[in-house]
Computed example of a mutant assay.
Amino acid sequence: MPTTNAPSIWDISAPVYHASPVYPGDAPYQQRWSASMAEGSVVNLSTLSLSPHVGTHADAPLHYDAQGAAAGALDLAPYLGPCRVVHAIGCGSQVQWQHLAHAITPDLPPRLLVRTYRQAPQDWDPQLSGIAPEVLARLADLGLRLIGIDTASIDPADSHALHSHQVARTRQLRVLENLVLDAVPEGDYELIALPLKLMEAEASPVRAVLRTLGTQSG
């Protein structure tokens, strides 16, 4: 559990701006100003263009299933509630069961967030760590509803079969990617990471936060 002098809220969202790393081939973040107070407008007004996979995001089933639900149709319940953060730093190309076993207890919450980086990279990482598909299946057997990771994908960057995404599809696991867990100790928290109501999109940006269990809103 977090120490008593730890913050009650952790922002575990990646910053989204022009330098945000993107999966090769994805559309980067772009912002165009259509009105500027510096040029005499009464307001600043801009237009954004980006892949919904830029920054911290929730994959919708439509991302890996032609008949899957879009982000806006997702049940929000998996994205809100008790979760466990576990560290698997230096795990290699895939998180294996032995990297998580120390944190898998009978009281495992239905949400698990995995930290693989000592410090989140500022650029695209072709050596990112995914999660082995058999690990996801085993976690689903234990009642897991959501898996999150601090890399850009639950599959290795060079994967074409996307075996782990397919396990997420068949086992109805919800997926969060590009979390920032650098400062978060292992332990149990409340997760809040709601996708936007994007009715035709295969993913959605989220503003993901963790709260110390028992924290009351002000």
Rank of each mutant, 00 (worst) to 15 (best):
I131F: 02
H53A: 11
T212H: 12
S8A: 14
P78V: 03
I131T: 04
A203S: 09
V180R: 13
A203E: 00
G218P: 15
S217W: 14
L113A: 05
A137P: 04
G40T: 05
K197T: 15
D125C: 11
I154F: 04
D158H: 10
L144S: 02
G55Y: 08
I131Y: 05
G92P: 04
E186S: 14
H99E: 05
S159L: 06
H63F: 14
Q96D: 10
D59E: 13
V95L: 04
A69S: 14
R32C: 04
H63Q: 13
G187K: 07
L50G: 02
A35M: 10
V43Y: 08
D155L: 02
G68R: 06
P195W: 06
L194T: 14
S41V: 00
P205T: 06
L128K: 10
Y64A: 09
T170I: 10
R174K: 13
A101T: 03
I149H: 01
A201R: 08
W124F: 14
D182G: 10
I192Y: 09
D188E: 15
R174T: 00
H102C: 08
Q94C: 11
V16H: 02
T56G: 04
D107E: 12
S49M: 09
V86T: 14
D158P: 10
Q122G: 14
Y17Q: 14
S41A: 15
D75G: 07
Y17L: 13
A66C: 08
A70P: 06
V95W: 00
D150Y: 07
P133Y: 01
V86Y: 00
A66V: 13
H53P: 02
S13F: 01
T105L: 12
L76P: 06
V22H: 11
A152D: 01
E186A: 14
H87W: 07
P2V: 13
A69G: 08
E200M: 13
L162A: 13
W10P: 03
L210E: 02
V167F: 07
A69V: 12
L173Y: 01
P121S: 01
L144F: 05
V43M: 10
A71P: 06
L50A: 08
Y29C: 00
H102I: 03
Y64Q: 03
R171G: 05
L142G: 04
L76I: 11
A137D: 15
T212L: 13
A161T: 15
A38T: 02
V85P: 00
V206K: 01
Q31A: 07
P24K: 09
E202L: 01
L112A: 03
A132R: 03
P61N: 08
R169V: 02
G143Y: 03
Y64F: 15
L112I: 12
R32S: 10
R174P: 07
L76V: 12
L139Y: 03
T47K: 11
Y64S: 10
N178Q: 13
H53K: 15
R84K: 11
P185T: 09
E134L: 12
C83I: 05
